[in-house]
Simulated scan of single mutants.
Amino acid sequence: MVRANTAYVLDPETTIFKPVELQVDLGIRPLYAIIGCRLLEVVRFDERHTLFVDEEGLQDGLTAFTIFEGFPQPIAGKIVLVGGDGSTPYTSPLISLEDVAKHFKCCRPVLDPVFAKADEISPGGIIIAGALAGLQCRIERRAPTLVEGEA
């Protein structure tokens, strides 16, 4: 009989946050495949739970990331939450998916068009009113989308 524990996985690209089953006897090996990384970083969620994240996730070309309440920097890539202190064997979370989700914001950069309001003069010449004058960047922040019963 194969024993399994539940873990919660957050994908900032889709904002989907869901439970998955992980085989206990494989230790943390399945986490590398779920997160899609070569090097795991362990981040304490609270005294009873641990996050596993991609140590090398913050790279050029970042299209989405997660803000974890109280953590000093953004987290790039998928995030896995398990019960325990990060050592094996880990356990299923002792907190609900809804309660965990309250601590995260999924973020992505968004480019908004900026249109000339009147005939403007720029270093490149005259920009006619209503024409695209440039792009402005902002960060869109969304709560995770909860998907129950996947484990």
Results as ranks from 00 to 15, higher is better:
residue 76 A to S: 14
residue 128 I to D: 00
residue 44 R to E: 14
residue 45 F to P: 00
residue 28 I to L: 13
residue 135 L to P: 00
residue 106 C to T: 11
residue 79 I to S: 01
residue 114 V to F: 01
residue 88 T to I: 15
residue 128 I to K: 12
residue 49 H to Q: 04
residue 72 P to D: 11
residue 59 Q to V: 13
residue 92 S to W: 07
residue 137 C to E: 14
residue 103 H to K: 15
residue 29 R to Y: 13
residue 139 I to D: 03
residue 126 I to Q: 07
residue 62 L to H: 06
residue 59 Q to W: 00
residue 36 G to V: 09
residue 135 L to Y: 13
residue 117 K to T: 09
residue 99 D to L: 08
residue 93 P to I: 05
residue 48 R to N: 15
residue 79 I to N: 00
residue 98 E to K: 10
residue 84 G to R: 10
residue 147 V to G: 03
residue 92 S to K: 09
residue 71 F to Q: 02
residue 50 T to Q: 01
residue 141 R to V: 03
residue 113 P to G: 02
residue 33 A to K: 14
residue 118 A to R: 13
residue 94 L to P: 00
residue 45 F to N: 01
residue 72 P to L: 08
residue 148 E to T: 08
residue 39 L to S: 15
residue 69 E to C: 03
residue 37 C to G: 10
residue 146 L to F: 08
residue 55 E to H: 14
residue 77 G to W: 06
residue 62 L to A: 04
residue 122 S to T: 15
residue 119 D to I: 03
residue 52 F to Q: 06
residue 72 P to R: 14
residue 99 D to G: 03
residue 40 L to K: 11
residue 50 T to S: 11
residue 112 D to L: 10
residue 47 E to L: 05
residue 130 G to D: 04
residue 132 L to Y: 02
residue 28 I to V: 15
residue 147 V to T: 05
residue 148 E to F: 15
residue 149 G to R: 02
residue 144 P to S: 09
residue 54 D to S: 12
residue 114 V to I: 15
residue 136 Q to K: 13
residue 140 E to N: 05
residue 50 T to R: 09
residue 71 F to M: 06
residue 106 C to L: 12
residue 48 R to V: 03
residue 26 L to P: 01
residue 36 G to I: 13
residue 75 I to H: 09
residue 128 I to A: 04
residue 95 I to D: 00
residue 109 P to K: 11
residue 105 K to M: 11
residue 74 P to R: 12
residue 34 I to H: 04
residue 110 V to W: 02
residue 76 A to R: 09
residue 140 E to T: 07
residue 47 E to F: 06
residue 138 R to S: 05
residue 102 K to L: 12
residue 83 G to Y: 06
residue 110 V to K: 11
residue 25 D to E: 13
residue 107 C to M: 08
residue 97 L to E: 05
residue 98 E to D: 11
residue 144 P to Y: 03
residue 84 G to I: 10
residue 92 S to P: 09
residue 70 G to S: 14
residue 121 I to C: 02
residue 66 T to Q: 01
residue 118 A to N: 12
residue 51 L to C: 08
residue 74 P to M: 12
residue 93 P to Y: 05
residue 48 R to S: 14
residue 132 L to R: 03
residue 94 L to N: 01
residue 59 Q to Y: 02
residue 43 V to K: 12
residue 91 T to S: 15
residue 91 T to R: 14
residue 118 A to G: 00
residue 48 R to A: 13
residue 49 H to K: 01
residue 51 L to Y: 09
residue 118 A to F: 08
residue 142 R to Y: 10
residue 98 E to V: 07
residue 100 V to R: 00
residue 107 C to S: 13
residue 29 R to Q: 13
residue 65 F to K: 08
residue 142 R to S: 15
residue 72 P to S: 05
residue 80 V to P: 00
residue 117 K to V: 07
residue 98 E to H: 07
residue 32 Y to A: 08
residue 137 C to R: 14
residue 118 A to I: 11
residue 88 T to K: 09
residue 76 A to Y: 11
residue 53 V to R: 04
